[in-house]
């Protein structure tokens, strides 16, 4: 049996801000249908790495391949067209729009400049049907007509993920999705991400190790702008220091 090549590959990524090296020789690969985690302490370079992988920053060296195609340095909108999508740590929702409308404005047909007034868009049954499907994926069915501003924090997080799914991506990058969520919210989000795995390849950036240990198939640890460790959750948990740390005590409970 031959293994299929990874869906997403980053090779020798290098990035600097002025004199400071922020990413040094980053190599990553994500297999189709998997959940991958990227974790690291604050200031380790997680967000910069994410921004380079998703085309927000151009690397100073190295390459990014998606489905065998070199997508290094493509503009963010071109990256989205290829089937790569991302969520943001800071939520980018339109508060005065309903949940359904928030999805509709993110769909490809609307993004591709159908310069039609918005009331026309709402009458487009194909787009609203699609948007309703996306809402269902994140468990927000029934809230189609709720204003984003009226939704709970957890629901807004789910809606934010739904917005990133509206572009029909194949791989979705989630930037600190547990940010601001309590224990219940985290558990719900973990369930949601588990269901999304059937349809999408997922990459999650998190500083919550627990959350990643529970969800991810493979985790890369970033520090000093480099990958300092990688493996399955079990492999990483086998590290002596992880076992004796607070984290280790929690995960064995």
């Amino acid at each position: 049996m031959t293994e299929s090549p990874p869906l997403f590959v980053a090779e020798h990524l290098h990035k600097r801000f002025g004199d400071q090296v922020v990413l040094e020789d980053i190599n990553l690969s994500f297999n189709a249908g998997s959940i991958s985690g990227i974790m690291g302490p604050n200031g380790a370079g997680k967000s910069t790495c994410f921004n380079v992988l998703t085309g927000m920053y151009r690397p100073d060296g190295g390459s990014v391949f998606f489905d065998g195609e070199d997508v290094t340095g493509l503009a963010p909108e071109r990256i989205v067209e290829k089937g790569i999508s991302r969520s943001f740590q800071i939520m980018n929702l339109f508060d005065e729009f309903t949940a359904l409308e928030n999805i509709m404005v993110a769909t490809n047909r609307v993004r591709h400049g159908l310069h039609r007034p918005f009331w026309d868009l709402r009458a487009d049954s194909e787009i609203s049907h699609k948007a309703a499907e996306v809402l269902a994926m994140v468990g927000l069915t029934g809230l189609e007509n709720s204003l984003a501003s009226d939704m709970s924090y957890g629901q807004r997080r789910a809606l934010e993920i739904a917005v990133s799914l509206a572009t029909e991506p194949r791989i979705v990058f989630l930037d600190e999705p547990t940010q601001g969520l309590g224990a219940d919210g985290r558990a719900n989000l973990a369930d949601l991400i588990g269901t999304l795995q059937e349809k999408f390849t997922l990459v999650i950036i998190e500083h919550d190790m627990q959350f990643l240990f529970r969800l991810a198939n493979r985790i890369s640890v970033i520090h000093w702008g480099q990958i300092i460790a990688e493996g399955t959750p079990d492999e990483l948990k086998a590290n002596e220091w992880v076992r004796t740390s607070e984290l280790g005590k929690m995960t064995t409970c």
Binding site: G40, M209, H223, I228, N239, E240, W241, V242, S245, E246
Partner: peptide
Amino acid sequence: STQDGYIGFMLDF
């Protein structure tokens, strides 16, 4: 810091 497990990853690195 012994709070999290990162120290172990650093030493391995």
